[in-house]
Design a protein around this nucleic acid. Structure first.
Length: 453
RNA sequence: GGCGACGUGGCCAAGUGGUUAAGGCGGAGGUUUGCAAAACCUCUAUUCCCCGGUUCGAAUCCGGGCGUCGCCUCCA
């Protein structure tokens, strides 16, 4: 298996330190609803995790919540509620969204606010080791003390300084030193510390929590490409300075960012589409297919048309997976070549687009075999199993649709009409139902209906 | 200004030195069907932004050009 590592800028053979793969994925700062960029990122890492499990690795998956920071405080103040309460609200919403996307729960969800004593301990140690210094209640990390700072994002200190648009705090030893601890301003939530009341800076919480739950060295650390600098660069600097263990992470994985209308979708531009909005008009399978049909490291342009196309694709897979031809005699369809293709694709740095193509080809074979009277149950099980690795449910359910019994009744009556060759009436029923979003199919096994998404 | 990525059919998107350039969506025709739907079959890029070069051979490597985008500042 090969994984592309951002730090080395090439595909590396995947050799975890132990049977247990230690995986950490940067979570959200809960100050707003999740958008489809989050969906993309977390679907990708969910698939990484599922695939590792499929390949018989035990995976310990940790994802944090950075539940205290400037944006949370600002937004909570706007709304006139405590920061903690607002973070809680968006964390709950986060779980709803992720469940809706069929993303597996992490093994641990540490929160910055619940790890403050450890954060303080780590910051103090960094000061003791000469990697950090206090300044008027703030604590800064001394970048020039780090091992090869800039190695992840492949930039040199001089280059960064030249184009930096950061307001330089004159008191800081070096312009790019970043905050480990921020002194509290009046009215801000704060914790007591050796440097006075304050709160953790961004970056340090991930170093502390990953170390606490997974140890000094991680196998996989993931996140969006926008986190490479400064977030992950700073994490490396802190973590390696604190533990002395290099490398902090064996495989750095970063997904390309989602584009919207040729533009980055971002909080500052305000052109967000939330996960909730998407799941109202589209299935989780379609969204996952949309994401997985391109390479995770490439930017992905979101479009309603593209998503609609994937809805059709999801239906195609779902039909093939749930076909019933009732044949049990004879040589069954062999799905192994498709599974082999799937594995080869995924082994090559999670080439999900190729893996998906294998599933579509398998679906075609299943449909064909079904018509030819060849047993397909085994092949369908393989299709379902591999789809599950991608987190696709492939379920034909209209259970959540309240009108089900009424549709059943209409279908029953229509069947009577068809038996009596009352085509005009039966077609009216079908057409009207289609207009209402219920499509009918007359098959050898009777009439089936589906609710269109 | 610095760093980096990308440009493949109507749309999306794999492939990155050598069989017929995956797959999905869309479109055309056919089989099937009472008619549909679904499914299946056939067709839909002699060609991979442009110009040079390396090579027996390039979409794939190198150089130049044009274009798009990202990061350098909060972000998955």
């Amino acid at each position: 298996m090969k994984i592309y590592d951002t730090l080395s800028s090439q595909k590396e053979d995947f050799t975890p330190d132990s049977d247990e793969v230690k995986m950490y994925v940067c979570g959200v700062t809960p100050y707003d609803s999740c958008h489809i960029g989050h969906a993309m990122s977390y679907v990708i890492f969910d698939v990484v995790r599922r695939y590792l499990k499929f390949r018989d690795y035990n995976v310990k998956y940790v994802q944090n919540f950075t539940d205290i920071d400037d944006k949370i405080i600002a937004r909570a103040n706007e709304r006139g509620i405590p920061a903690k309460e607002m973070a809680e609200e968006f964390i709950n919403e986060y779980f709803e969204d992720m469940d809706g996307l069929n993303i597996m729960r992490a093994d641990f969800y540490p929160r910055a606010t619940e790890e403050v004593p450890d954060i303080i301990r780590v910051v103090q140690t960094l000061i003791d080791k000469g990697h950090a210094y206090e300044l008027n209640g703030d604590v800064y990390f001394r970048i020039q003390s780090a091992d090869n700072y800039g190695k992840l994002s492949h930039r040199k200190l001089d280059d960064m300084r030249a184009g930096a648009r950061i307001e330089v705090d004159e008191a800081k030893e070096y312009a790019l030193d970043f905050a480990l601890w921020k002194a509290a301003k009046p009215g801000e939530p704060s914790w007591d510390s050796p440097w006075g009341p304050g709160r953790p800076g961004w970056h340090i919480e991930c170093s502390v929590m990953s170390q606490k739950y997974l140890g000094d060295s991680l196998d996989i650390h993931g996140g969006g490409q926008d986190l490479v600098f400064p977030h992950h660069e700073n994490e490396i600097a802190q973590s390696e300075a604190f533990t002395g263990v290099i490398p902090f992470v064996k495989y750095w994985m970063h997904n390309g960012l989602l584009q919207l209308d040729q533009e980055k979708m971002s909080k500052s531009l305000g052109n967000l589409i939330t996960v909730k909005e998407i799941l109202e008009k589209s299935s989780a399978d379609a969204l996952r297919l949309f994401v997985l049909s391109s390479h995770y490291r490439s930017p992905l342009s979101f479009s309603d048309e593209g998503l609609a196309a994937m809805e059709r694709g999801a239906e195609r897979l779902t039909r093939a997976a749930n076909l019933e031809n009732g044949v049990t005699q004879g040589d069954p369809l062999d799905a192994n070549p498709y599974q082999k293709r799937f594995i080869e694709a995924m082994d090559d740095d999670f080439n999900s687009a190729q893996a998906v193509a294998a599933l579509f080809d398998l679906s075609r074979e299943i449909n064909k075999a079904s018509e030819e009277g060849i047993p397909i149950a085994n092949a369908q099980n393989t299709l379902k199993k591999l789809s599950d690795v991608l987190g696709l449910k492939l379920e034909e359910d209209h259970a959540e649709f309240d009108g089900g019994p009424f549709v059943d009744l209409l279908v029953e009556i229509r069947s009577e009409l068809r038996a009596a060759k009352q085509w005009q009436l039966s077609d009216i029923i079908r057409d009207r139902l289609t207009q209402l979003g219920i499509s009918l199919e007359d098959t050898a096994q009777g009439t089936k209906w589906r609710q269109e998404k």
